[in-house]
Design a binder for these strands. Structure first.
Lengths: 203, 203
DNA sequence: CTTGGATTCGGACTACAGTCCGCTTGTAGG
DNA sequence: CCTACAAGCGGACTGTAGTCCGAATCCAAG
């Protein structure tokens, strides 16, 4: 291989055994998460079930949160696709306030469906990490745009994070499970919250 | 002592050595937190510095979060006192919307002043625990009352937690440190957020 | 002062996330 | 097919929160 050219495109072609192990690990994690729950499954157990060393597990996925994220990959991609390019009111076409309401409600459903996994993905060892890695950045950029379109006088960057906070996994799962609030109630509460924030108040 | 009567009042009189150890532990924790930072100080190190066994440390304070909370006790009490019985607009007397704005801004200052400690207090090992123990319950009750007074048509329970979410330690410290947003900016953003939510929109 | 027994002490122990490094293996080039 | 070496492997190791239980201690009552 010409040492002055990169192989094909950035990606240095993953070795066959590495790819096989990645699959084994994902499969083992899925099995154990389904059998015993996400919170009760240790990384050691996943490595054992996958027939792989612990070092391999962490080499592939970095940490627990990233492994959870990898398992969510396809549904996460679908979700992002739906609010970026999907049909209105989630996707483009609807007025920004309606899009924001739909976004929050879709995220609430996403959380209800994949709660434990999303919780694990957002519970990084180092606090604050979840804001830098993971899908948060995409959500944030989307919400900032919607706020700018709907209410130019707001501090969009601040408001985006403020509105994203009650859609975090820990908060929502606490409301759903700890407080026994129904998903429909959260959806309704979010709608009136978002509508009030994006509606310019009378002077 | 008459075995049919409790000593004085519920509290079964703490033993002298236990009280002494509690003080030693609090003092050691304060020292080490100040010297090396909260995040970099382990429970082992605190026990060692206090000249106390690890079991004693955990017997007294239960876990890391509760120890952090114990260190915050006096400033936390002052803060709660100020919004429950203090002067307006934080305390009673001002209209509920102004009180809510002042509450959020005071909480933001509280976070800016005691960030690391509050972060440790809110980063419980078991996710969601921070909503059940600690000051969150008091904040929640206060905000629910204010919302009920200001906007009867809102779901006060949902809205209280939604508005408290962007005042959580992890979020605020991320904004202050990770994003470099100034405290005054957060205070201004919170004000317009709270004002919009509590102001009934035109039909 | 002595004693009885509940309370507390302390450090060994468990479980877990994440790191490290010497050994193995797949693969590209000959 | 052979070879060299980068990539990958695995499990021992570290550091941490939190648990447990036999031993030591304190306090009240006599």
């Amino acid at each position: 291989m010409n040492p002055f050219e990169l192989p094909v495109i950035g990606v240095p072609t993953e070795r066959a055994d590495a790819a096989r192990n990645r699959q084994r690990i994902l499969c083992a994690a899925e099995t154990l998460f389904a059998r015993n729950g996400v919170a009760a499954t240790s990384m050691d157990a996943i490595a054992l079930e996958a027939g792989v060393g612990k070092g391999t597990l962490f080499r592939r996925f970095g940490d627990r949160a990233s492994l959870a994220l990898a398992l969510l990959e396809s549904s996460e991609r679908d979700f992002q696709e739906s609010f970026i390019r999907g049909p209105a009111p989630l996707g483009p076409g609807a007025p920004p306030c309606e899009r924001l309401i739909a976004f929050g409600q879709a995220l609430l459903s996403h959380l209800a469906a994949h709660g434990d996994l999303l919780l694990a993905a957002q519970t990084a060892g180092t606090p604050g990490k979840r804001f830098d890695a993971g899908p948060h950045g995409t959500y944030r950029a989307h919400v900032i745009t919607l706020i700018r379109d709907a209410a130019a006088d707001l501090d969009a960057e601040y408001t985006a994070e403020a509105l994203l906070a009650p859609l975090g996994a820990e908060v929502v799962l606490h409301q759903l499970r700890g407080r026994g609030m129904a998903l429909t109630r959260l959806a309704a509460g979010w709608e009136s919250l978002a509508r009030r924030v994006l509606t310019t108040p009378p002077i």
